[in-house]
């Protein structure tokens, strides 16, 4: 399943496949340009007594980097994805259980957080857990000339060695970075993550651009549902 690059919207090509892991309850791989992420969802599972919640499911998110051990940045991403998962899954339907979500970074060419959120959404979709809505995440970069770039591809600088690219954040050729997450019903903002320097006008402008671009991701989700429903 693929959507070609659209010149007007300047979003990178998206490709995805569901159910790629045989043993998890729901799984998906998604590539957005050069960025790639695999997500897997298991649940409802038996929950450990420490995390048990009598009213709703406990959601656990594990984010794994491509290499090395997960650190503070990964924990931060886990926290973002966890709160989004708790919003979009109807956790009240699965009391005294646990839902485990895993996101594995495969390749980072910018906008990886958005890519991971979209992968998690597709994996939840595949697992058959009941959801309130779909979520679509879009990355936007503010370059040094104050231009907003929707879903930009990271282009490594020629003088950087491989190990330095590995260590440096893939979004560093922008002075400001935004990741917006929208829901599919009202297209309202359900999550935002920013870093760098920008003005409030630039923030509002970026949000508006991302909201328009989110339609493309929702269309993509719908196509995926349609495609995978043919064998039911």
């Amino acid at each position: 399943m693929e959507i070609d690059e659209d010149r007007n919207n300047k979003m990178r090509a998206i490709a995805s496949e569901l159910n790629i892991l045989t043993r998890s309850d729901g799984s998906a791989i998604i590539t957005q340009g050069g960025s790639c992420c695999i997500a897997s969802v298991n649940g409802p599972l038996e929950v450990s007594p420490a995390n048990i919640d009598m009213n709703k499911a406990y959601v656990e998110v594990i984010y794994r980097p491509k290499c090395g051990l997960p650190g503070v940045n990964e924990r931060y991403k886990e926290k973002i994805v966890k709160s989004l998962c708790e919003t979009c899954i109807i956790t009240q339907l699965y009391p005294r259980t646990q839902i485990t979500v895993q996101a594995q970074e495969m390749d980072d060419h910018g906008g990886l957080l958005a890519c991971a959120i979209n992968a998690v959404n597709l994996a939840i979709m595949n697992s058959g857990l009941e959801m309130k809505f779909h979520m679509a995440a879009i990355h936007c970069g503010l370059d040094s000339d104050d231009n907003l770039n929707i879903d930009p591809e990271y282009v490594p600088k020629a003088n950087l060695t491989f190990s330095r690219i590995q260590r440096s954040s893939r979004s560093q050729n922008f002075k400001g970075n935004f990741t917006f997450v929208f829901d599919s019903t009202k297209k309202s903002l359900i999550g935002v993550n920013t870093d760098g320097k920008f003005t409030i006008q630039q923030y509002n402008e970026a949000q508006k651009l991302c909201k328009d671009a989110s339609r493309k991701i929702f269309d993509f989700y719908r196509e995926m549902v349609k495609k995978y429903a043919t064998v039911l």
């Binding site: 159910n19 309850d25 729901g26 298991n42 649940g43 409802p44 109807i90 979709m125 595949n126 697992s127 058959g128 009941e130 959801m131 309130k132 549902v225 995978y228 429903a229 039911l232």
Partner: peptide, 24 residues
């Protein structure tokens, strides 16, 4: 609340046919 195909069984039963591996 699920992804799949909306189905109707007569007279008025509605359900969504969706993919699932975990049993509830």
């Amino acid at each position: 609340t699920k992804n799949g195909i909306l189905r109707r069984r007569k007279p008025n039963i509605y359900y969504v046919d969706s993919y699932q591996k975990r049993y509830i």
